[in-house]
Amino acid sequence: MLLLQLLVSGIETGALYALTAAGFALIFGATRIFHFAHGATYALAGYAFVLASRLGLAWPLGGLLALAVAVGFGLFLEAAVYRPIQRHHGAFFTVFVAAFGVVIVVQSLIELSFGRAFVAISTPLTRAHEILPGLYIAQVFWVALAIAIVIFALLGSFLARARAGIGLRALSENPDLLRAFGLSARRLSALAFALGSALAVPGAVLGAATTGLSPGVGAHVMLISLAASVVGGIGSLRGAALAGLLLGVVETLVVAFLDTQWSEAAGFVVLFVFILFRPSGLFGAAVAR
């Protein structure tokens, strides 16, 4: 029963990781920008939701505010940080360092305005009830699962059918195809950032209710997203989502056998195994360029 219980919490955590990791993978896959500040987007969205609830706004309004903040931040970074760097040279490491700087700036701004302590939102949704003997499930579990399924279904059909969706997939591989379709690479890149950043919102909002937020919360989420996109196969949305789920489950299940302090490390062990033995990941088409 312990394993089942842990599996349930692992799936809850993993569903939210999957969304955030898919956001990172979407951006990376379409633009080849190593968006290390994706975790900062997550943190900002979460704190925006907390702010809204402190102001007494209803949760749908809070969710919209979080969404607006996340998308706005993603678009801002694309235009103000990544595009200027890429215009000159576009070295991978330069982008990485710049993004890391952004992460630090966002974290300190949150510290200055919200303090460095944990903040959390209290809701009856996180109260667990005994479903089966020994199995406790909170409503937030079903919420997380439902959100993840609906969003992935919508995202999948958008990428498969909509013109812009097809364009996104073509952006990195075949820019000529874009011209044929009459799509602008610049606008598509902005679209990738908007969509990818929006994917961080559900995890951030539900995270604010379940585990609470701290200014450094983005770092953990970012590392998980990174690990998930390697394990899933760099650039593969489906892979990142599946790997995000897998990492969430591994991180929780490991508690059944080891000290909890190993739970974060367990995800990185999975990462190493993939880098060493299957660098193309679960769904990667080719080994590193």
Binding site: Q5, T13, A256, T260, Q261
Partner: peptide, 16 residues
Amino acid sequence: DAISPTDQQFSAIAAR
């Protein structure tokens, strides 16, 4: 159960 001072996730510990 030993935890680190920066841990925030305790639901797995609770289950155990």
